[in-house]
């Protein structure tokens, strides 16, 4: 009987300790989750700002004058040739064109 009482007492103490540990661990994990969520939220916010900045920097209104200042301009009709003609000029070009077309 005494042995059983002692065992029950030990079990109760162990359970209380386990409960405390679980409680503590749960709180720690919750804090960890919250900190991760905050980090993820901050990362998302940073990504949104970076996306907006990339959009702003690559806007046609900015790119067009830069390209023209480098001597680039929209292609004229006489600058475009068929893949067959391109192949006659540059032997490997037809395969390249086909590869690009397939990849799209």
């Amino acid at each position: 009987m005494r042995l059983l009482n002692i065992a029950a007492f030990c079990f109760a103490v162990a359970s209380a300790f386990l409960l405390y540990s679980l409680n503590y661990e749960t709180r720690r994990l919750e804090a960890h989750i919250q900190s991760q969520e905050r980090a993820a939220q901050q990362a998302k916010s940073d990504i949104a700002v970076l996306k907006a900045e990339r959009g702003h920097l690559s806007r046609p209104e900015r790119i067009d004058p830069l390209a023209r200042s480098q001597g680039l301009m929209p292609p004229r009709a006489d600058q475009l040739v068929s893949p067959d003609l391109a192949a006659a000029i540059v032997p490997d070009s037809k395969a390249s064109v086909r590869r690009v077309a397939e990849s799209e």
Binding site: P74, R76, D78, V81, L85
Partner: peptide, 15 residues
């Protein structure tokens, strides 16, 4: 026209 992928006459004629 080029950006829209319209082939000029020289290209159409050879295809």
């Amino acid at each position: 026209a080029g950006q829209l992928g319209v082939a000029p006459m020289s290209v159409v004629a050879t295809q």
